[in-house]
C-alpha cells in the first residue's frame, strides 16, 4: 500500500486536528463522567431551615392546577384545611421517561399505598405554559380524572424552589419537612419512604 503525502491529506489532518481541539476547548467542564465518584458529597443540612434538601422545610407555595384551582402546600400540611400525611411532587415534561415514571406511580405506588393514610400526588408540569395546555397534556397522556393533581408551573417557581428537573420526585411530610428530593429512578426510594411514613 503506497502512502503518498499530498496537500489534500495534509489539509485534512490539519482540519481534523483543529476541529477536534476546538471541540475539546469549547467544553470547559470536561465532565466528571470519565471518572465517576462514589463519594457522598451531600451538604450537611440544619434541621428547621428552609430549602430544597431532604431534612429541610419546604417553603409554602401556591400554584394553579390544571382544573384552574389554586393548590397551596400549607393546605395539605398537618394544620391545613385538607391535611395529608404526605405530599408527593413529580416533575414532568410529558416525555417517555416522565410517563414511565408517572405510570409507575399510578399503577404500582398508588395501589400499594391505597388506604394507608392520605397522600396527595402532584404532577408538576413545567413545560405546557398554561392551565389549558397542561389540561390538554394531562388528557393526552391518560391522566384526566386520575388521582394526580397536575400543577401548572408556568413560571418555574417550583422548579426553582426544589431545584427540580425532569424526573425529580419530592416527598414532603405533614410537618412540611422534605423527606426526599432526587430522580425517581425505579421508584424504590419513594416506596421505601412512603412505607416508613404512612400508618
Amino acid at each position: 500500500m503506497s502512502y503518498v503525502r499530498t496537500p489534500v491529506r495534509s489539509w485534512c489532518k490539519y482540519f481534523s486536528l483543529t476541529l477536534l481541539l476546538s471541540m475539546l476547548s469549547a467544553c470547559g467542564d470536561l465532565t466528571e463522567d470519565l471518572s465517576p465518584s462514589s463519594d457522598d458529597k451531600r451538604a450537611t443540612v440544619t434541621a428547621g431551615t428552609t430549602g430544597y434538601m431532604p431534612g429541610q422545610l419546604a417553603a409554602d407555595f401556591f400554584i394553579s392546577s390544571s382544573a384552574a384551582d389554586t393548590f397551596q402546600l400549607s393546605d395539605h400540611l398537618a394544620t391545613g384545611a385538607e391535611p395529608a400525611d404526605v405530599v408527593v411532587l413529580y416533575f414532568t415534561m410529558w416525555c417517555p421517561i416522565c410517563l414511565a415514571h408517572s405510570d409507575h406511580i399510578y399503577n404500582v405506588v398508588m395501589p400499594q399505598f391505597a388506604g394507608r393514610g392520605t397522600i396527595v400526588y402532584g404532577l408538576v408540569d413545567y413545560v405546557s405554559g398554561s392551565v389549558s395546555a397542561a389540561r390538554a397534556s394531562e388528557q393526552a397522556n391518560g391522566y384526566a380524572g386520575s388521582d394526580f393533581v397536575t400543577l401548572v408551573d408556568n413560571q418555574h417557581a417550583l422548579m426553582d424552589q426544589f431545584n427540580g428537573a425532569m424526573g425529580t420526585v419530592v416527598v414532603i411530610d405533614s410537618d412540611g419537612t422534605i423527606l426526599m428530593n432526587e430522580d425517581y429512578r425505579n421508584g424504590a426510594t419513594l416506596i421505601d419512604i412512603l412505607g416508613q411514613q404512612l400508618p
Binding site: 463522567d33 465517576p36 465518584s37 462514589s38 463519594d39 457522598d40 458529597k41 451531600r42 451538604a43 430544597y52 431545584n163 428537573a165 425529580t168 428530593n181 432526587e182 430522580d183 429512578r185
Partner: peptide
C-alpha cells in the same frame, strides 16, 4: 456500571447504575 452521586447538579446518596 458506574457510581452516581449527583443528579442534575444536586448531590444525592451514592448508588450504582
Amino acid at each position: 456500571e458506574r457510581p452516581v452521586n449527583r443528579e442534575y447538579g444536586t448531590y444525592v446518596e451514592p448508588y450504582d447504575k
